[in-house]
Amino acid sequence: MKVEQISVFLENRPGALEEVTGILKEAGINIRTLTLADTADFGILRMIVNDVETTSRILKEKGYRVSRTSVVGVEVPDRPGGLHGILAALAGSGVNVEYMYAFVERNEQNAVMIFRFDDPDRAIAILQQNGLTVLPGEKLYAS
């Protein structure tokens, strides 16, 4: 049920992000969602794409440092307390959220959040036991 995320190391300089999006455009890669974590000197671009293999390969060919990480896509009920329900389910289990960001999904009732857990397998089991919908990677990669 895990989703593969691509992370790219970028220097914090003008045009760094644009170079990556340009390469992906050339290769016909569709970025389903992305987030950028940054410091004064560098940033990490994290994305879910429609073709993980190709994206990883071409960015490495262009000299980027690329890593693949397992994340979890969870449906968040689009109402007050939606996100809280997810976090409450995990609270006390010892599973830690390293980071999270929103998935850009159209025409759906629910929002989708991407979570990076320190223990994704355990997180998935707990979420499912609590009746929450964990989305399979295929559903998120497909455009």
Partner: peptide, 17 residues
């Protein structure tokens, strides 16, 4: 330069910092 190994081990800001 960020080595392949460093970045493969973790994509977290705090680890790189």
């Amino acid at each position: 330069e960020v080595s392949e190994q460093i970045f493969a081990d973790s994509d977290e800001i705090k680890v790189l910092q």
